[in-house]
């Protein structure tokens, strides 16, 4: 059974439907105490980091996510919230994935980074199974995680940044797999198949 953590953000339905297209029915949970009963979990997120982080903290999600030992993956802002801290609102995050989130240096390109972009430098991992370095996924973001030892795949927009990260049982995707057509479906299936 897979849980979608209800952070009160708007794209929960999109994530739920994407899993339903893969034949699994996630449960959207609002009580942190429910989390431990699920085999794996998704932390979705869109919007402003500070607002989302305050919402997680005030609902008591920090401890539940901290103690969770099964696969848990953040999507977009959800991924950023799993990291150490973010420049968006200058706040500490959940600290489960090493690295800080900084504003993407887009140079002379338009911001936000919005649209389909390539994955590159994919490192072999259950989450990158059947993914090739020229596969494209759908991004919408202005902040990003710098490439480091936890990076499983990169992308580039003005600068290189982490597209997929993983550390222990925690993972994150900066793009929206739920809106990334067949490649996105493959990535979500990889998450379902991921055994620690």
């Amino acid at each position: 059974m897979i849980a979608i953590i209800n952070t009160g953000c708007a794209n929960i339905n999109s994530v739920r439907f994407a899993f339903e297209r893969l034949g699994v029915t996630p449960e959207v949970i609002t009580d942190p105490q429910q989390l431990v009963h699920f085999d794996r979990a998704i932390l979705p997120g869109v919007g402003h980091a500070k607002v989302a982080m305050e919402r997680l903290t005030s609902s008591g999600w920090n401890a539940a996510i901290d103690e969770y030992q099964k696969p848990l993956m953040g999507i977009c802002l959800g991924m950023q919230l799993l990291c150490d801290k973010t420049a968006e609102g200058d706040i500490n995050c959940l600290g489960k994935i090493p690295g800080v989130i900084s504003q993407l240096d887009v140079k002379d390109l338009t911001a936000p980074h919005m649209g389909w972009n390539n994955l590159s430098e994919c490192i072999k991992h259950p989450l990158t199974e059947n993914i090739n370095s020229d596969d494209q996924v759908y991004f919408v973001h202005s902040f990003a995680h710098a490439v480091s030892s936890v990076t499983l795949a990169q992308s580039e927009y003005g600068q290189r940044f982490s597209a997929i990260v993983a550390k222990d049982n925690y993972a994150g995707m900066q793009f929206h797999p739920e809106r990334s057509a067949k490649i996105g479906a493959t990535l979500l299936q990889n998450f379902l198949n991921w055994q620690l």
Binding site: N13, S14, F17, A18, E20, R21, Y138, V140, H176, E178, R179, S180, A181, K182, G184, A185
Partner: peptide, 8 residues
């Protein structure tokens, strides 16, 4: 649409 479409 959201249920059946996998692009933005």
């Amino acid at each position: 649409i959201a249920r059946h479409i996998d692009i933005p």
